[in-house]
Nucleic acid binder design. Structure first.
Lengths: 211, 211, 211, 211
DNA sequence: ACAAGCGGGACTACCCGTTGTT
DNA sequence: AACAACGGGTAGTCCCGCTTGT
């Protein structure tokens, strides 16, 4: 499609607005007309950049997944730079997400992937495949960190590491829903803190000494 | 509105189909035409029972919240009948939800409340108010149980009980999303088990002796 | 679909207008908007009666083929009532078509079947199947009459009867095109007269004595 | 307009594809987008060569009419070279058309002029004028040959020569329609043979001695 | 001689809701 | 309690043609 700077900018503006609107109204709830009104382009422009609304949804979730993956990797990397202890590393990573979700007056607008999942029969399979790929990336990356932790701190109870890894995302996704509905941004941060506590209780013999 | 047995049955059939379809496609993704096609009634029948599509959405979330509340209360009550220990009571309650979500080949189809929340700007405020009422009911009821528990088992770490209570729902909602997307019903059960473990680690000095 | 007198009338009005317009502009050249404007109904009405524009095209060609078949059979039957000689019978039948196409100031608006054939890749296969069925019906019915004729009047030259039968329709279809383009209604009648002459030359030993 | 070899080639490629597509889908059924997709050029290229879609249609029918006229004249000329008898000359000419339409597995794709005529209200008057010019050219040229024939072979029945001349084209156009619809290339050849038989029966006292 | 980007409107299809009737 | 028929508007898509830039 487009490669020129002008066209690329238009395309990005459309995707930006689409993301906001889909998080508010769902994919089916966003019409191309609404979208282009908000962006200030014409239908001709929209369909120049995207073959269809579904094609746009695909481009959007691809971009979202890419950004999510990049941020996730960065948080893991920062954790690993800031501490040499594997447990501390993961706690820092979770803490960076707390910062992301806490530093704003409004609740975080939600997760595009969850939005797509709640319209499973509307969005194309390919979009869900991208979502699943991302879910599994989180699971694998966190599971690996948990494995390193459990080598250093043998867990006090028998624990299934992949599902414990899933818990990170599960808590974020679940907290988004309550936070959005109750319009309370604090909820996501609180739940991530519980996740950190849980990790510490599992892996640290004496929680009294931890933050 | 009608109360005759025939009319009531039609009304319920419409709501049943609407619930299935909304969980698959979102509220905006379900058209009245699709809905009546699937139920096998005409538009006249639909608009006889509901003043509008939004009116139907309201009736639906009301019915859903009522059923949810009833089941939730029953699970709490059964926990209280089956044990006299407040911690065990709550663990049993969580366990009953595990049974609900685990006894099926398919993943649980999702939570209607979450579905509405991801179309916040589409559904009417009144519907979200009903959702929030339910979220707060869970928070309050579980917080009260946690308070009772913490009287018997002082927590090993300082813990915020309302947000810990929220965790129950948060985990269910978050796990629904992963379970739906990855088409893996086990995820919800696994996450609820982690929730039970977390409670035990917080309140029980020696987890090795607990179920 | 519709069965009430009111609905049926609307449906027929739509088909009537569609036929006129398609003969003037082709199927692709007629938009649903143009059509409903001309008929004076709304889009809701159109899509109540027809699932799609293609569905309407199918209903239209079905109706056209039915009427064509009925008129064709009637012309054959009238020929057979008005004479007992098989050759005269067929000549009368052709003559009845001359009357049909000659009694008007304007050229005959054309044949819907030909219109569809010139948009072969646009209309649905099922529509073309109906067209073909009609073409073959003409071929078979006329071939049978030619066979009867050739029993009474052995042809002066060896002649392939099915293709001679096709000639009837071929001439009508071809003459329509010239007549429309040159805006000369006489062309169709002239060509049918040539068809009659041809038949007489083939089957009558002494053409000088024939009409 | 361009005259460079490259530009001219692009222009011709566009016209070639347009002709194929219009014969399959009608003028309205072919969009500029489809067309340029198939040719593999951009819209810029299309509108560089043609001021509008209608302009292209005009250029196309002009080219078609030119080619048609050239081929027609050549067939007449070859007939006149191959025989000195005026009847034989015309029969040869018809025979050359049989060769043209018979030497292919697929039915002849149809006549662009007929295609335009079946969208009379869509194409511009100027295009139809070109079509009519061609129709009249055929009529006049064949009528003149028939006149020469009738001088040598006085017709056995009184016959209108211009309409008999029209019959040549009428049969071709009509046969195209049946041939396309029934997907049977033999039909055109068969009908042209009937046309030759008809001429022989009119002009030749003893058809048994003719080819 | 062409390519990218886009404007503005037309296209088919479908939307939700109303009507009159049974 | 439900049905057929329909109104009026919006959905997503595609249309043709213009502009701007090599």
């Amino acid at each position: 499609m487009a490669v020129s700077p002008k066209g690329e900018a238009t395309r990005e503006k459309i995707l930006d607005a689409a993301q906001d609107m889909i998080l508010d109204r769902g994919f089916s709830g966003v019409s191309v007309d609404n979208l282009i009104d908000r962006v200030g382009v014409t239908k001709g422009a929209f369909f120049h950049h995207f073959r269809s609304k579904h094609d746009m949804a695909l481009a959007l979730i691809r971009r979202y997944a890419d950004q999510d993956r990049a941020f996730f990797k960065e948080c893991l990397a920062r954790g690993e730079r800031l501490s040499s202890d594997p447990l501390q590393q993961l706690l820092i990573t979770v803490g960076l997400y707390e910062e992301l979700f806490g530093d704003r007056g409004e609740p975080y607008p939600g997760c595009l992937m969850a939005s797509y999942v709640y319209e499973l029969q509307v969005v194309e399979r390919e979009a869900i495949d991208i979502v699943n790929e991302n879910f599994l990336l989180w699971r694998d990356a966190v599971t690996e960190r948990l494995r390193r932790i459990s080598k250093v701190y043998p867990p006090r109870i028998e624990v299934d590491l992949p599902s414990l890894a899933d818990g990170f995302l599960v808590i974020i996704e679940g907290a988004f829903i309550l936070a959005k509905s109750l319009h309370d941004p604090a909820i996501v941060v609180q739940q991530l803190q519980h996740y950190k506590h849980y990790l510490q209780l599992i892996f640290r013999p004496d929680p009294a000494t931890s933050g």
